[in-house]
């Protein structure tokens, strides 16, 4: 097991502006096999310039790894303007100690990311596999599609311990999302597969859904185009089961919505 610790230097955050650093080049699969000097020389984008990782982060390495699975990257320091943590990651582990900026775990294919704080928008965008745990809140577009795509998340598992913003799992086609708090408007919009569980409240979940399943355990404000089917029991709890979204026409309304 190898742990690479990357601590954002304070100088990066001291200018008049908070220009984000993009760390999509710093995933376990890409850093595996590099020694400290090589690590420090990996280029990352900071605004319109490429910089050496070592110039933006304090880098320390402990232990050895036999493959990418055994690499763990720990991000430290003020991460609120560090974008794309674990973007496209295929294996290994990332731990982000603090609130992270946008697109954390986007396009993720495998491995595990733990965010010890809140995640800004588009965490887990188009996620394909692996696990993403957000210990705080997630902002809008969690696990959504990219603009214009008709497929969002297709696999993997995401847990948010806090609340989630709008449009959780838009166009979701597979995988699982668990929101322990509330989900803002339109969770599971255009959903076509997979499962979203919201342990607290939700507004207009499942609109235009054509497949998949949503369970809301708290209060639900529904859109007016779902059809009540029956009272159903999920994990020993009684729910009203609806089919929808009939706004999409009968043939397509194959989504399931369980509400209290």
């Amino acid at each position: 097991m190898q742990t690479i610790t990357l601590k954002l230097k304070e100088a990066v955050r001291s200018g008049i502006a908070a220009v984000p650093v993009e760390v999509d080049a710093l995933t376990p699969d890409q850093l595996f096999g590099k020694n400290e000097a090589e690590l420090k020389a990996v280029k990352v984008w900071w605004g319109n310039r490429e910089e050496n990782t070592g110039d933006l982060f304090d880098v320390s390495v402990e232990g050895d790894a036999g493959n990418a699975e055994e690499v763990k990257i720990v991000f430290e320091g003020d991460l609120t303007r560090v974008k794309r943590i674990g973007d496209g990651m295929k294996a290994g582990e990332i731990e982000a100690r603090g609130d992270v900026d946008m697109r954390c775990g986007a396009m993720m294919e495998g491995g595990k990311i733990v965010v010890k704080g809140n995640a800004n928008c588009w965490a887990g965008r188009e996620m394909r596999g692996g696990e993403l745990i957000i210990e705080g809140d997630a902002e809008d577009n969690l696990c959504a599609m990219y603009r214009g795509e008709d497929k969002g998340m297709t696999g993997g598992k995401v847990t948010v311990n806090g609340n989630a913003g709008e449009l959780v799992g838009q166009y979701m086609a597979g995988g699982e999302i668990l929101i322990k708090g509330n989900a803002d408007r339109l969770a599971g919009l255009n959903m076509r597969g997979g499962k979203i569980t919201i342990e607290s409240d939700a507004q207009w979940p499942g609109s235009d859904m054509t497949g998949g399943e949503i369970v809301v355990k708290g209060e639900t404000e529904m859109t007016p185009s779902f059809k009540f089917v029956e009272t159903a029991t999920v994990d020993g709890v009684e729910y009203k089961k609806y089919l929808g979204d009939l706004a999409m026409g009968e043939k397509k309304a194959k989504g399931t919505l369980h509400v209290k």
């Binding site: 859109t223 185009s225 779902f226 009540f228 706004a247 026409g249």
Partner: peptide, 23 residues
Amino acid sequence: DYPVFSALRAILQGHEDVVPDKV
């Protein structure tokens, strides 16, 4: 506005039965 559009769509799709009394 959002649910109002959804309701109109459901009606135009032939599903006025599921639309509640007020949207």
